[in-house]
């Protein structure tokens, strides 16, 4: 669990700086142009005291084709180079997320996240047969906090430093099953990546900084996440760290567009689920998880009456370095509806 210590210490050290800002340095024109609405990254949402925000996010993630390290592999390559009897060929994941955010002060916003996932994985057997497995249900519930630790202004706008902490509860199913051509009509345990939850309590810490000016906002967010214990199936899901950066430009009082980039690292699964046969399919082998990804995205957002925000974003991987043999990510599309009260 050493991974979280630097983040925890950083949070404490950041908090030791008193929040200090000076809007008095703003001119009248800068004040009326100052953007008081939160940037598009949820972990940086810090609302005004008493504000309640309900956000619904829908995302569709598509993975297509196999790969190893930075190389894409065809199904033919997989069966030639490996001994697996089955290989996945594509996967679709639809996620519906409901966020409730409430600001207890102008510095601290709490968040509860519920999400429902539906996953579908397409396979091909060494004999040429095809089949699909599915799982769906609610995932792990997250209780989070975003806290602004510091803010200062310069002649262009305001710079904010904020921290994020989450506790993820193991409410998602880790016993999802489905039938396959080899299961003889019975249901068998689905692999790690098709499970809805982690089965473990997880902690997530993040540090971020952003700058809000009259016309644009940009920032970066560093996050680390890890499981605190092994789950009942005998494994601990892979730890993860990511760095997100974004730029958003106001094109009018209500309309904005943005660009984003992210770099994600995911470690190895520790322990193993004995219900899975790692020689049958790559997804059942814990060594075929983890890696590093870089993604680029674009987003648009429209604010209605200062209360509703609707938005859409899309991102594509620009670099993937996969551990073992895995499906390669193709695209992520996200639709956003937010209501602030």
């Amino acid at each position: 669990m050493k991974w979280f210590l630097p983040f925890f210490l950083a949070i404490i050290s950041h908090y030791s700086f008193a929040a200090e800002r000076n809007y008095l340095d703003f001119s009248l024109e800068q004040l009326v142009d100052y953007d008081i609405y939160s940037p598009p990254v949820l972990q940086s949402h810090i609302h005004w005291a008493g504000e309640l925000m309900v956000a619904y996010h829908y995302s569709h993630t598509r993975t297509d084709g196999m790969g190893s390290a930075e190389t894409a592999l065809s199904t033919h390559d997989v069966f030639n180079d490996y001994t697996y009897m089955v290989t996945p060929t594509a996967m679709n994941m639809d996620m519906h997320m409901l966020h409730f955010m409430y600001a207890v002060s102008d510095q601290t916003t709490y968040m509860l996240r519920l999400h429902h996932m539906a996953m579908e994985m397409e396979h091909e057997t060494r004999m040429g047969g095809e089949f699909t497995t599915q799982s769906n249900g609610f995932g792990d519930i997250a209780i989070s906090m975003n806290h602004q630790v510091n803010e200062w202004s310069d002649h262009e706008g305001n710079v904010r430093q904020f921290v994020h902490a989450s506790l993820l509860l193991p409410t998602g199913d880790i016993d999802a099953k489905d039938t396959t051509p080899m299961s003889g009509g019975g249901q068998v345990q689905l692999p790690y990546g098709m499970q809805l939850g982690s089965g473990s309590y997880q902690a997530r810490f993040g540090l971020g900084v952003d700058k809000l000016t009259a016309k644009d906002s940009f920032g970066a967010f560093l996050m680390a996440k890890g499981a605190l214990d092994k789950n009942d199936a005998g494994y601990r899901i892979a730890p993860e760290a990511s760095l997100d950066a974004w730029y958003q430009r106001s094109l009018s009082n209500n309309f904005s567009a943005g660009l984003s980039g992210s770099l994600t690292w995911r470690g190895d699964i520790s322990g193993r689920d004995d219900r899975l046969n790692p020689n049958l399919v790559p997804t059942a082998d814990r060594d075929n998880y983890g890696g590093q990804w870089a993604e680029m995205g674009a987003s648009v957002s429209y604010l209605i009456d200062g209360t509703y925000r609707v938005g859409m974003s899309a991102s594509l991987p620009v670099w993937q370095d996969l551990s073992g043999l895995q499906l390669r990510k193709k695209s992520v599309i996200e639709l956003i509806l937010e209501l602030t009260l």
Binding site: D106, T108, S166
Partner: peptide
């Protein structure tokens, strides 16, 4: 983790104010 979150509950300087 929860204690850390609660520590941050103390309101400090009011941004909107």
């Amino acid at each position: 983790v929860l204690s850390t979150m609660l520590c941050f509950m103390q309101p400090t300087l009011a941004k909107n104010s």
